[in-house]
Amino acid sequence: MSGTLLLVQALNGLQLGVLLFLVAAGLTLVFGVMDFINLAHGVQYMLGAYLGAHFAAIMGSFWLALPLALLGSLAIGLLLEVLVFRHLYARDHLAQVLATFGVILVLNQGVKAVWGTAPRELPVPALLDGGITIMPGLQYPVFRIAIIAAGLATAGLLWLVVERTKVGMLIRAGATNPRMVAALGVDVRRLFTLVFATGAMLAGFAGVMAAPIFSVEPGMGDTVLILAFVVIVIGGIGSIRGAFIAALLVGLIDTLGRSLMPDLMRLILDASSARQAGAAIASMLVYVAMAAVLAFRPAGLFPVRGG
């Protein structure tokens, strides 16, 4: 494998990581601040993608579809909060997992009822179409660069809000000790609603940004949700910084594993078993990494919650 190819693969890993961060950021916020396991975060990502594809088909423009899809994601998120999630905050994690799993089933089926079962597409906006040749015969799509930029911008903005503003201070305080925050006279319910709305918007944003690359279909959020949980567990639940670093880590491990493992296995196995074993091991690497992190740092790389 040449050095160029390795660099290209590292870039690919980075980009997958940034996309994972967009999904994981909302999840870790909600989980960290509200101590609420929202399995439905994946379907909120899916709804963002569907709304994006839907509005783009009507308006004929990605740039009009993006804000509309964000508003739609926000509205649906708030509706879910009022109808379902609000009643679960005080319950234990099992009840939350069951109820939000129910939301997954209902929304996956609902999406099918509204948009049909066939996959849909959101075209790449003309402004970001095309690519840059990064190695002979391979173009790096401009839209993927836009995803990296959007992810970095989101990370920066979230960091700024969480670390440098009063709301951010409350969020950090809420993540560490919500009862104390409430005792100090902060309206925790309003704080929760704000955090939840941000999480829903982030999920929707990730969905819209992913839709031009991935297939928009029922159940598309489920795979992403699992990876997002891996990210927040590695990063430390509730930590934006942890989510960012863990997402990049997971993206890199996954991509480099997929591209290098079959070749590495060839050192000890014959070609055809090396390919299959390499592929199988590569798909496990992320979870192996998570297990390793949990073994040495049970609270993740950047633990937030105080004892």
Partner: peptide, 23 residues
């Protein structure tokens, strides 16, 4: 080359780079 990917693969960029390199 024969490349096997997991059934829940999302992003093919690693494989696409391999294809470009193999020409």
């Amino acid at each position: 080359d024969e490349v096997f990917v997991p059934l829940n693969q999302l992003d093919f960029s690693a494989e696409l780079a391999k294809i470009a390199a193999a020409r």
